[in-house]
Write a protein that binds this DNA or RNA. Structure first.
Lengths: 93, 93
DNA sequence: ACTATGTTTAGATAAATTTCGAAAGAGGTA
DNA sequence: TACCTCTTTCGAAATTTATCTAAACATAGT
């Protein structure tokens, strides 16, 4: 996906809010949806975008589907941003 | 703008490419536009989005308008990303 | 004041994205 | 198998975004 899909995914406020929620740990799709004034179908769509961007991972358990953050991709974004914010590429000290 | 406009701005590939260009230093709007297969008006639109997101700054000189990166906003994004990638908020050691 | 150059704004269109309701899929359990 | 719950997929409508051409704006030089 190479940061292209990733940034597009991060561009949407709903998706960022979902990510914030997942900081607290894995959640079921239904519980995530319950936090929004949107249909479950819509939230499912956003989750699929996040998944496509590798920002979240899903794990099936019983008949639930849990979503959780995928930290490694955030590391990649971190590098991209650092190349603008910090120094040349390998950062301060 | 508070990261909301910022992420939306970063979501577009053209705009990210413009930012990459500006790593090399300030550039005139026309020179930036010349690097794309788009009308100048369209590039101007993208520049306005980047400006609105505070990712770039413009400085007028002679009858040119120069655009350059605004590092401070990248620092903000860095913090946001770090809160997902690194640790709780203040990063590893 | 006029012209020329560099850039943005306006208005319109095309393309992509978000959203919904309804239907389908997947997994348990009876 | 049939049913129930959780979640996704489908098809369509609504909203947003990107793009273009043409026109306007700004500034410098003649």
């Amino acid at each position: 996906m190479s940061l292209k899909e990733t940034f597009k995914a991060l561009g949407d406020p709903v998706r960022r809010e979902i990510l914030e929620m997942l900081k607290g740990g894995a959640m079921r799709a239904g519980d995530i949806a319950a936090c929004f004034e949107m249909s479950q179908a819509t939230v499912s769509y956003h989750l699929s975008q996040l998944k496509k961007a590798d920002l979240v991972r899903e794990t099936k358990q019983k008949n639930y589907i849990y979503y959780e953050l995928n930290a490694s991709v955030f590391e990649e974004i971190l590098l991209w941003i650092k190349s603008f914010a910090g120094g040349t590429d390998d950062e301060e000290a």
